[in-house]
């Protein structure tokens, strides 16, 4: 029953949230775009003249930029591949009848609750340290040359750590999706002569398709902004080997205090995220109608 009175009070109830979010979105966004056209460095006080596209030019021609873009792609792509494929396998595994399912599930999900700085440091020190880390000690025990993870394969190491944190997320969501599959559908398929592979391919996978898409899109949004894991493990190095776009912008703005170039990078990051967000929003929007 929507009367006129309840309509206007409803509007009143929504407005604080709308005003706050609008402010949160427009003010910083406007400032970022504005700064991106200024010659503005915090270390050089004084005038901040209009610079046109200069910042974008510097940002794009900076050799670190192309490296950072590539690193971002590799990082996001690598983590997505591991977590999606791994998540499907884990979900299928956990969906099977077993003893102590609850406990096993909790163990699989646990890494998601570990804060990024902690997981970065655990892996870096306790596992990947070539001398005292467990991997190093195992290698030494087997008489092999220990790998210097962050020296030799820095990006793979970062991907590994981030994947460890996000695999539970994918597993949890895909498992939820899998459990909503009607068992009778699978039994019907079995009666129709479908082997396990067939059932997986023709029934389970299509059923999970939506959830998989959601997992990929949401993770992409978060993975584009990976920061803390890099900060505590490699600081973006060696060189720029593990510098992603987020980290590059952090370096130029908060370490080199170049507001102009940092802002230009920020605009690039926003555009990139918006491309993904566009598809994600469409999916969620469709679901809202259903």
């Amino acid at each position: 029953m929507a009367t006129k009175a309840s309509r206007s009070s409803a509007r009143l109830m929504i407005s604080p949230a709308v005003i706050l979010l609008l402010g949160w979105m427009i003010i910083p966004l406007g400032m970022t775009i504005y700064f991106s056209f200024l010659r503005y460095n915090l270390l050089q006080p004084g005038a901040t003249p209009f610079a046109g596209w200069e910042n974008y030019y510097w940002f794009f021609t900076d050799p670190s930029f192309s490296a950072a873009m590539l690193n971002t792609l590799v990082l996001v792509g690598g983590v997505l591949t591991i977590t999606t494929v791994g998540g499907i396998c884990f979900a299928l595994l956990l969906d099977r009848p077993m003893f102590g399912q609850g406990i096993i599930r909790i163990m699989v999900i646990a890494p998601f609750f570990v804060m990024p700085t902690v997981s970065g440091l655990i892996w870096k020190n306790m596992f990947m340290n070539p001398v005292n880390g467990i991997f190093g000690q195992i290698a030494a025990g087997l008489g092999l040359q220990p790998i210097d993870f962050f020296g030799q394969i820095p990006m793979a190491s970062v991907i590994f750590i981030v994947a460890w944190m996000w695999l539970p997320f994918a597993t949890l969501i895909l498992l939820t999706a899998l459990q909503s599959l009607d068992q009778e559908q699978l039994e019907a398929a079995e009666m129709d002569g479908a082997s396990w592979v067939n059932r997986f391919w023709f029934i389970m996978l299509p059923h999970m398709a939506r959830a998989i898409t959601v997992v990929i899109l949401i993770q992409t949004i978060f993975l584009l902004s990976i920061f803390a894991e890099i900060l505590v493990t490699t600081n973006g190095g060696p060189g720029v080997a593990t510098t992603n776009l987020t980290y590059l912008i952090y370096v130029s703005s908060l370490l080199q205090f170049d507001v102009g170039i940092g802002s230009a990078g920020g605009v690039v990051a926003i555009i990139l995220a918006n491309i993904v967000a566009f598809f994600l929003m469409r999916m969620i929007g469709k679901n809202l109608d259903a």
Binding site: P28, T32, F35, T246, I270, A273
Partner: peptide, 12 residues
Amino acid sequence: TKMLPPVGVLIP
């Protein structure tokens, strides 16, 4: 608004 990358508004 949740999709806005934090680094995009870090400086402001």
